[in-house]
Nucleic acid binder design. Sequence first.
DNA 1: CGACGGCCGATTGTCGACAGTCGCTCGTAT
DNA 2: ATACGAGCGACTGTCGACAATCGGCCGTCG
Lengths: 223, 223
Amino acid sequence: MSGLGLRRVPSLSRREHVAEILREAITSGRLKPGDRLVELDLAAELGTSRAPIREALRQLEQEGLIASYPYRGSEVLGVSQDEVEQVLVPIRITLERFAFGKALDKLTDADLDALQGVVDDMLVAAAAGEAERLADLDIRFHELVIARSEQRHCLQMWKTIQPRVRAYFRRDAPAHADPADVARQHQELLDVLRTGDRDAVLDAVERHVHIHLTPPGAGDDVG
Amino acid sequence: MSGLGLRRVPSLSRREHVAEILREAITSGRLKPGDRLVELDLAAELGTSRAPIREALRQLEQEGLIASYPYRGSEVLGVSQDEVEQVLVPIRITLERFAFGKALDKLTDADLDALQGVVDDMLVAAAAGEAERLADLDIRFHELVIARSEQRHCLQMWKTIQPRVRAYFRRDAPAHADPADVARQHQELLDVLRTGDRDAVLDAVERHVHIHLTPPGAGDDVG
DNA sequence: CGACGGCCGATTGTCGACAGTCGCTCGTAT
DNA sequence: ATACGAGCGACTGTCGACAATCGGCCGTCG
């Protein structure tokens, strides 16, 4: 537990800061499954009292990143392959099919431009081999569309399961996808979005999210 | 905000108590969408300080029952039909298919007996017209199996989405199912569980959860 | 020598108080 | 009469301290 650090950013509550920092520490692997989280230590480390720490821990617990036991503290949890493939990704598909369907009518040209910008950045990141940045852009792309769906619950649930998926791929299933491919697949998805064909979009979303499960060595026979 | 009341039960944390009481108040409709939740009022009402209240509110927020706005408090949220049918129920299906599959190998005779006990109670409750009790037993049946799957995350996510489903059917879609039918469908599901046929179980689970969506007036042409 | 039971440090659960922020009201100027 | 802005009340965000609980240590007893 060193080098976490908390900077003052007035527009965001301490609780949200703490949650973000811990989330990043866990998904990046800096905090590993089994590591204990001691409230007082975290409070000292992040320069706050325990109250925001505790609320952040509750949130991470709901997100499945940690487990808490009464009077016995919290520990970082691992993510199993079964869980990702059979639960988290199918749920992501359910959520995104719904959200993309809802967002379809609401996406403005400005939104589509913004999405194109993200994809362009992905190409740059892919070319530069910046895997972390690529993953961030990946998340931003999906979150942007889901946000436009204006389905508050949907976005919230997506944010709830996404960290675990990210943690899994960052920690336990390293570098399974070709970066250039990731960028290209998002371009294709965006192109389908532009057509406005609802059935085609839902289908593309399903296939797109599913791709995350393709094993490392598999050939890319994308049309 | 009257008559909530908090009793001392030493084995459960205040936070969990508060969450449970508020969850019940919301799903029952005693607290309606749009109602504001003032921490100090709740604390006074429940006889605690604000700390456990706040942590409970964070949890209810994650469950999608309430929304909180920085410095502006929390309010009870409604649940839309779209959300239930296109998001929550499909997610329940995903979770339960996974959990029932995992639980299948682990269910002991004692577990099956316990499930049969629940179903028997459902028949009694159905005959007596006790809808609330029937719904509680319904939840207990599913939760029992999911708990046996020993998939911590799965159980937790189920508990996260279940309150909203319950809130929807209690508040917004009253009495849509024949009580006797509910009991009978659980008996059928349990019978399939007893066979141990994995594919049959997964199929039965999917159909079983889906039934919740059958519109009120629909005929029951179950074989 | 091993099992039992009461202390003790470490850590969480809870509390009451203070600080910060928001929306509204009310006075003021135009 | 209306638009504007300072002041105010209500509430949330945060803090430091106290109480409760857990797990392990250590002495005692069989």
